[in-house]
């Protein structure tokens, strides 16, 4: 067998497998940090998230700001995507959550409503 032919067989297989995967399974998924943010779905409890930070130190500063203006129960926790979440958990309904958000915006905080995981 000519020297090049065998190597071509290997090269074709090496390229062919990922091409077949693309054809039959579609493009690969590349998760981002946004995948750890759960949009409100209407089931279960919610959380009001004051923000995400890359370090616990920065998250503690935001938490202290929220506590200082009266948002009791604000805690930090890891979000599973390498960031630290600053939030109030166990919000019972969407209406309560939106009310909390309205109040927060009056004191220069900009939280969002998320579903609890």
């Amino acid at each position: 067998m000519p020297r090049v032919s065998a190597w071509l067989v290997v090269a074709v297989a090496a390229l062919g497998y990922p091409l077949l995967v693309l054809v039959f399974s579609g493009p690969p998924a590349f998760p981002t940090r946004a995948d750890c943010v759960l949009a409100p779905t209407g089931e279960g409890e919610y959380r009001v998230v004051f923000g995400y930070r890359d370090s616990e130190l920065e998250a503690l500063e935001l938490r202290d700001r929220a506590l200082a203006v009266g948002f009791q129960g604000t805690e930090i926790s890891r979000d599973g995507c390498g960031r630290v979440r600053v939030a109030v958990d166990d919000i019972p309904s969407r209406e309560v959550g939106e009310e909390v958000i309205r109040e927060a915006r009056t004191v220069d905080l900009d939280p969002t409503l998320e579903q609890e995981g």
Binding site: M1, R3, A6, W7, V9, V10, A13, A14, P18
Partner: peptide, 21 residues
């Protein structure tokens, strides 16, 4: 250039490469 590889060797190498992928 690269060394000569027979068909059998190439077929086995293909399996290893696809396994790793």
């Amino acid at each position: 250039g690269p060394r000569r590889v027979g068909l059998a060797g190439a077929a086995l190498a293909v399996l290893v490469v696809v396994y790793l992928e």
